[in-house]
Design a protein around this nucleic acid. Structure first.
Lengths: 74, 74
DNA sequence: ATAAATTTATTGTTTTACGATAAAAGTTCA
DNA sequence: TGAACTTTTATCGTAAAACAATAAATTTAT
């Protein structure tokens, strides 16, 4: 599973979702989809803009979380 | 600019493009588009499969290269 | 409570992934 | 030199998804 960690970078940069959406040039509603892991893909143009504005790397935004098919119990 | 660094991970894993394509379940031709930075976006499902097969993180595959609009001279 | 910010939900358009196939180009090796 | 193999390029087609726009619902803060 690929997780989008925009919250973390937003917090680090002390930026609100609305502000980021404005700077990205997309509506807050559409940014929200990405931010809440509802998206199924991402355009490189969007990822590029995110990295530029947040001054970070894709690594700071995208995370691969291995699927633990195993029981998961503690 | 977002750069796809699949070559590096393929080399590290000593895996050929064809072999990776086969394991991904996509044709070598279509993987090539991604590998040679011809793609404009990527599905999380594909990125997920890449990370799983190559045992790596998106960070190992996707890189943000800041645009140096400045003269670039040394 | 109420104002502001965020998320959800829809509908519509445009773009892109990815499939499939054929051809071109580049490698390897005898 | 040339056959065998791998990778890339080029098209066409279909299904999927980004992103726009708007309104409504929800959450958070004051």
């Amino acid at each position: 599973m690929i997780r989008v960690n925009l919250d973390v970078m937003l917090a680090k940069r002390r930026l609100s979702s609305g502000e980021l959406a404005e700077r990205l040039g997309i509506t807050p509603a559409n940014l929200s989809i990405l931010k809440t892991n509802k998206g199924k893909a991402i355009r490189f143009s969007t990822l590029d803009a995110l990295c530029r504005i947040l001054e970070c790397q894709p690594a700071d935004i995208l995370e691969y979380v291995p699927d633990t098919t195993e029981s998961e119990a503690v």
